[in-house]
Design a protein around this nucleic acid. Structure first.
Lengths: 136, 136
DNA sequence: AGAAATTTGTCCGTATGTATC
DNA sequence: AGATACATACGGACAAATTTC
């Protein structure tokens, strides 16, 4: 069976299936996913396809893979209790920012740094820049 | 000749070559790149290898691909006003980011730059960072 | 309107080498 | 030494979107 299948690409189907198992607890947080070789057998998919599925899970933050070890399921916390931290300061435009804002290098700008955490881990860092400072 | 390891992988060599053609204007912005089939012939590489090179250009924001059409060269200028522009690329952690994410300096991160305009003026620049990349 | 050709997207199978545990 | 994942590359096949005839 060549398995073309409905609409969806195969790697996405596999990703959906694995996501389901992680979120449902079939694969508990912190435990290893089945090895790529096992998944290729189970889904009768090529390795490249399985890897693409796993890559999708990594991007979603649902899995972390370690070289030579395997891919771990990660706890999926819907916990938004973590308040983002913000810090705002005056900075001077570097070449990149100067080009974007069409100002001279060294022109004063405002930078706000927001750090978003998921538990202990820093998930994202957002740096926002705008002309200024508007002196607060 | 198959492919020795001249320091750099084949797909990167191809990407470098194409990048130079775009930036130098040999392939002007808005025009189509040669089809994958043409590139496989020119570089005597497998299609997957060519596609990987093109994918690299896409991540740099140098090209846009449309199904059934082809891959267009993109202007590399920031001076094109319309929607919020986003560019995503792999970067290496500087000391500040390394400290926040608690990783080594030089660790690979993903940076997305979003430019928000109001008319001609750049209003805000948002740089978002997160761990990765999960490659491809 | 329809068929054919072109082009990218996805998938398969295989192979070789490296790095990590 | 063995198992695992990672990176790269090849070839072939069909699907899906677009263009051309």
């Amino acid at each position: 069976m060549p398995t073309p299948h409905h609409g969806q690409p195969r790697y996405r189907f596999i990703a959906d299936e694995l996501r389901e198992r992680i979120e449902s607890g079939v694969i508990p947080p912190g435990t290893l996913l089945p090895a790529e070789s096992v998944l290729t057998a189970e889904f009768r998919a090529a390795r490249g396809t399985v890897r693409k599925a796993i890559a999708a899970l990594r991007e979603e933050g649902l899995a972390v893979t370690e070289h030579g070890r395997g891919t771990y399921a990660k706890a999926h916390t819907y916990n938004h209790a973590d308040q983002p931290e913000r810090r705002q300061q005056k900075i001077l435009a570097d070449t990149h920012l100067a080009a974007l804002f069409e100002v001279e290098v060294g022109t004063a700008l405002v930078e706000r740094v927001t750090v978003i955490r998921r538990g202990e881990q820093v998930e994202k860092v957002i740096r926002t820049y705008w002309p200024g400072p508007t002196d607060l």
